[in-house]
Design a protein around this nucleic acid. Structure first.
Lengths: 197, 197
DNA sequence: GTGATTCGGTACCGATCGGTATCGAAAGTA
DNA sequence: TACTTTCGATACCGATCGGTACCGAATCAC
């Protein structure tokens, strides 16, 4: 009997699932969370925006809670460590990343902030999205410039690495729009750099 | 005909309202917002916790939206300008105020963050609670120490005055608990003071 | 073709919620 | 006493939502 590839093994008989449906469902959930909040993100509204049937949703996730967890987990946060050649450039690049590129992430997170306090699974995936890669990237930048001698050895790395994303998140969630680039540069020049030197 | 006092004029015939009922309702709304979020804060749950009837609530506010606005507006934020005699002491006192005393305020605000984005009235009262007195108090502290010569004249006053409450709010709302006093002191020493001198 | 699965769409069910109306009792004023 | 309003409690209504079941059409493996 011929060996079956793992892919062929996993493939079931019958019509295969359209990968685009899953992607459009998760994107629709994220959009609706931002626009209408958790309660306003009904299964019917998700199906309508994703242009699919409700059955396509329940075929993939058993409950609404699992669906939202999947949508939050699908928020990809680029964790690239910037390398512009200067300390200031790296810090501005990293901070700008939180403020602008993660606008969608922060908005989705702000919309489920209340549920995070009551859903362990949701809290875990949310923390993994925000508190993980971004803080690690900023930490790596600062520590690299410690090695270069541009940042003092006893600088409050963890404090700053946690403060910048927190402030960006707080600002975005409270004002409901991304930080201005000027404000980001000002924060780096007036707050971050003085604290590190 | 004898002159009527304004108080007597306002007093209606019939059983007067119990002022304690209004207070317990608003407190119950705040508690429930923190524990159960906006959707979980049902009129029935509020009445049960406040030990009153649902009619007592609808007699005072026409809709749930108005009730929540009143509960948020009832969050009193002390706007005292600390005067400890030293710049560092004043900054620590002000920052500690946001981090600890306003724990309840930040939790309530975090619970309605999603609704704030869609309810103008709610956004206004929320901003009035957080973005008003606290920022003004911190601004006053810094400007006073500019006059004393301890803070440089071109210091980024507005940036710092906005950053500290924002960071405290972001931290409380994300971690769902108050900031440690050590963390507050560290933030003042490592971030705020270097930025101001 | 045959069978299995997914597709979008719809009908249905039980539960919940916001809001209204009403009740008898209590607590005030005139 | 007569009247008015608030009190807690309850019944009720319309709407909505999560979740389930089912439909005929489409799409795959065999």
């Amino acid at each position: 009997m011929g060996a079956m590839s793992a892919e062929a093994m996993a493939r079931q008989a019958g019509r295969p699932r359209d990968p685009g449906v899953e992607a459009s469902i998760l994107a629709a959930v994220q959009d609706l969370l931002i626009e209408s909040g958790y309660a306003g993100t009904t299964i019917g509204a998700v199906a309508e925006r994703a242009r699919c049937g409700r059955s396509a949703i329940y075929r993939r996730w058993e409950t609404k809670a699992e669906l939202v967890v999947a949508a939050v987990g699908a928020l990809q946060v680029a964790a690239e460590v910037p390398d512009t050649g200067t300390l200031r450039g790296d810090l501005v690049a990293a901070a700008m990343h939180f403020a602008n590129a993660d606008d969608r992430t922060a908005s989705v997170l702000a919309s489920i902030l209340s549920e995070i306090g009551r859903d362990d699974e949701l809290r875990d995936v949310a923390y993994r999205v925000v508190g993980g890669p971004p803080v690690a990237a900023l930490t790596a930048v600062i520590e690299r410039w410690i090695d270069e001698g541009q940042v003092r050895a006893n600088a409050p790395v963890a404090l700053i690495a946690g403060l910048v994303p927190t402030a960006a998140f707080g600002s975005v969630s409270l004002r409901r729009r991304a930080l201005e680039p000027d404000a980001v540069v000002q924060m780096v020049d007036e707050v971050v750099l003085p604290a590190l030197r």
